[in-house]
Computed example of a mutant assay.
Amino acid sequence: MTRALSGALARRRRAVVVTGASGGVGRATALAFAARGDRVALLARGREGLAAAADEVRIAGGEALVVPVDVADANAVEDAAQQVADAFGRIDVWVNNAFAGVFASFTDITPDEFRRVTEVTYLGCVFGTRAALRHMLPADHGTIVQVGSALAYRGIPLQSAYCGAKHAVQGFNESLRCELLHEGTRVRTTMVQLPAVNTPQFDWVLSRLPGRARPVAPVYQPEVAARAIVHAAGHPRRREYWVGASTAATLIANAVAPGLLDRYLARTAFDAQQESGEHAAAGNLWSPADGPHGHDYGAHGRFDAESLPGSSEEWLSRNRGRIGAGLLVGLVGGGAAVSGLRRRG
């Protein structure tokens, strides 16, 4: 291979950062980027999960860089971004995916626990975005993808800390997007709102529920989320992507009849977020779930049997432009046909 060709291939291989990459949606997203041949920096606390994710990235065809970091530490995130820039030469895409949560009624969550969820889920996104912009703005190039949730618009019971943090990310990202548009930079930000996803979080999240924590059905596989995130990274002019029928239904219902949705969730969402059995894990709020001598959780949780491998909303969201063009062509063609019939008549 010539040096020029090698350089051209390296330029096409994006330099991507994924936070929360050791498991769940972050793990699946890292692999989806790797399948494109991208260079992927894996940021998370869990060393067992990071090591296993790096192996999978290399097998999938990508280049892996492991950077252990707690995203709630602003200085550590800045240092991590510099490590990526030093190793890859630039940062093309930064995905803010890391989060923490507590399954409990608000009055059963301590102030320190609530603060920690906010620091990881919201401030981790803020710190990651700041670190990314420090490298992207001078280059006038790059995309930041905020991984959101239907819960960024619609809070549900038993997840008040997480819902509050995701609402904050939503507001922060809208403000940032306006500022970037005002400045005329080619740096872009977009947000992907996810449904319930089959990830290991329901086994490692701190929970005070009487039953075993579970996602509200319908549940989607993490690869569905990963495909949407990768697509958003390549098409950041869209301000937001919705993934899953449940996300679309929730956001529409909340816009139309939020009071009715309050009462519906008060009646159904407590039972819908737990099932029989005891919650086994101590939680990963303060330390990684895999621990110093733990195991790798991977991308999938325990709900494979019921999880959906695809989403019509995901496809529609990705292909909205094509669909709109097709409808326009159809309308123009139909109008021309009617006009021709009238002339002949």
Results as ranks from 00 to 15, higher is better:
A53G: 03
F99M: 14
Q82W: 09
A249L: 13
G49S: 01
V17C: 00
V66W: 10
V95L: 08
S175K: 07
G171Y: 06
P157N: 08
V40H: 05
S311F: 08
T129A: 01
L331S: 14
F99V: 06
G61A: 12
V126E: 03
S6K: 15
A289L: 10
G164P: 08
H141E: 06
W286G: 11
R90I: 04
G294P: 11
G244C: 00
R154K: 06
T107F: 10
L261R: 06
Q274Y: 00
V256K: 10
D262Y: 09
A44I: 09
R237L: 11
V216M: 15
M1G: 15
Y297W: 15
T118A: 13
V69C: 13
A52P: 01
G62Q: 13
Q146M: 12
G101V: 09
G61T: 10
R318N: 13
A74G: 10
A245T: 15
V216E: 08
A64F: 04
F202A: 05
A44Q: 07
L285F: 05
L50K: 02
D140E: 01
D70S: 12
V243H: 04
A131N: 00
A10K: 14
Y162M: 12
A54D: 01
Y153T: 08
Y241P: 01
A217Y: 06
P195R: 10
A305M: 02
G321C: 05
L328T: 15
R130S: 00
V84Y: 03
G340Y: 14
S287V: 12
N75H: 06
S246N: 09
V25G: 04
A255K: 07
G101A: 14
E63F: 09
A225M: 04
R36L: 02
E306Y: 07
L65S: 10
W286R: 10
A232F: 05
V67T: 09
P215E: 11
R116S: 09
I109A: 02
V230D: 05
S105N: 11
R320L: 12
R12A: 13
E174Q: 14
A21P: 00
L180A: 03
V25I: 15
A269M: 01
A8G: 02
F127T: 04
I252N: 04
L327F: 13
L123P: 00
W94D: 08
T199V: 09
I323S: 07
G155F: 00
A60V: 15
L137V: 13
N173Q: 14
P292K: 11
W204D: 01
H235M: 05
L260S: 11
A213W: 04
A152T: 06
P309H: 12
Q159F: 08
H167Y: 07
Y241N: 02
A213P: 11
T110C: 03
